[in-house]
């Protein structure tokens, strides 16, 4: 079972922090403009709670994430509250992307996205890879997908 690159935690934690800040900000604004007087520590408390929960979830998510390239399928496991294990048979892979979002580029990471024709939960994305790793994984999945097809066609 492979893990994600540890630096993905940076990204997720940053995201949680930003989210907590936004929520705290909204709470602060609400406090300012609320008709009844709300103690000033309330928005801070709200922000802190969101921060703690968000950061904890981000770290736990990292611990929970794992993927494995098996003989005939890609296997993912993830999820903190709801654990999700997904099996994507290579024969079902339609195409494979490797993507780098602006934030991901900032921390020097990339993701690989696997598409199947399934109706939902179909688009499988593996975040937190090094750019080379993402490309390599993409390439490997592509080859395995082709190979699995050729295997069957014989």
């Amino acid at each position: 079972m492979n893990r994600l690159h540890p630096r993905i935690r940076l990204l997720w934690v940053a995201r949680a922090v930003v989210f907590a800040l936004v929520v705290g900000g909204v709470a602060a604004a609400a406090t300012l403009f609320a008709p009844v007087s709300i103690p000033s520590y309330v928005p801070v408390a709200v922000g802190v709670v969101f921060l703690v929960v968000g950061v904890a979830l981000a770290l736990l998510r990292y611990r929970a994430w794992g993927y494995e390239v098996r003989d005939d399928s890609l296997y993912l496991q993830r999820g903190v509250l709801t654990k999700v294990n997904t099996v994507v048979p290579f024969v079902r892979v339609q195409h494979v992307d490797s993507t780098r979002g602006p934030l991901e580029r900032l921390v020097g990471l990339a993701s690989t996205v696997v598409y199947t024709a399934g109706s939902r939960g179909a688009d499988v994305s593996i975040p937190g890879l090094t750019p080379e790793g993402a490309e390599d994984l993409q390439d490997r999945l592509k080859r395995l997908a082709i190979a699995s097809e050729g295997d069957d066609a014989v």
Binding site: G79, L81, T82, K83, V84, N85, T86, V87, V88, P89, R92, T116, A117, G118, S119, R120, G121, A122, V124
Partner: peptide
């Protein structure tokens, strides 16, 4: 079958069960 998804919510874990979905196109 396109993909197989097994999921276990936090409540399901208490009952030691999970849910398996066979996704089709």
């Amino acid at each position: 079958v396109q993909t197989v998804i097994e999921r276990r919510t936090i409540f399901q874990r208490r009952w030691r069960v999970s849910t398996v979905t066979a996704d089709t196109a």
